[in-house]
Amino acid sequence: MNVHYLYSLLAVIILGLIAYAGSEGAGLTWLFGLVIPYVALLIFIVGFANRVWGWAKSPVPFRIPTTAGQQKSLDWIKSSSIDNPSSTPGVIMRMALEIFLFRSLFRNSRVEISGDRLSYKWVIWLWLFAILFHYSFLVVVIRHMRFFLEPIPFVILMIDKVDSIFQVGSPVVYQSGVVLFAAATVLLLRRVFVPKVNYISRAADYFPLFLIIGIAFTGIVMRYFAKVDVVGAKELAMGLVTFSPGIPDASIGGIFYAHLFLVCVLLAYIPFSKLMHMGGIFLSPTRNLANNSRAKRHVNPWNNPVKVHTYEEYEDDFRDKMIEAGLPVEKE
């Protein structure tokens, strides 16, 4: 039993309904179409910068990378230059694999007792659905640039074309939308049905998932089922990005405002949530530092100056007495 996902689901549904009712019923299209998008973007930029700046200020005096392979030592011992990088190129390689291919998720394993033995199994599902989810989301975001750019660049048209290459139905089905919705749903079901994951999941884990599923859902609905006025949608979007905001005369449709509002909520929510991993992944000290502690001395920069009395100085003070007592001295 877990109430966290019920609250999150309810929150997303209520948010969607507020925007739908607000624009369709109360006629607050200016609020949901013009004011809230700007406010959300502002919160996102300021919040994101603030969060990253907080991390930038956090001191990392020593090297703390996860060492997932043989460290570089003697020439004849083969070292693992990516899993335990000792130089910047190795770190760049490690970060690229992490950011583009989710390498650490790829090595996910499950501990099981099979018979009377403890076994570790390689489990690929989390990696698979995570990478499907992230890349389809990226394609969806890039595709949406057709609403924000005029004239539409060739690259966007090309991506659009490839994404709908099977030409199913009319309007043609975008694969990325379907994959995004399906993969996000699988990631959600994982948190609901896998007991161990369910146990450590809180509202902050469910809410973003429901929010993204809600965005995908409203998007799919307004493209294929309860259709909205696409030209009006682009008119509104173009008004926003050229800072000449206006609501088009013809009604776009309440579901469009629900979609837009959920996106705004997501944007404004990102800086305060675990979704900051989009910035945080670049700033993970356990990944982005070279493990060169043995080759290079790292001194804590804010160490207090400590007054020391070295052995040489000690010997200088007491040399005569030491010789007299028959103790060995380094300097005669």
């Binding site: 640039m145 990005v241 050229t242």
Partner: peptide, 15 residues
């Protein structure tokens, strides 16, 4: 993130 703003700069578009 704000690419659309730069891209559309100076071009007034209408539906």
């Amino acid at each position: 993130l704000t690419f659309p703003v730069w891209y559309n700069l100076g071009s007034a578009s209408s539906a």
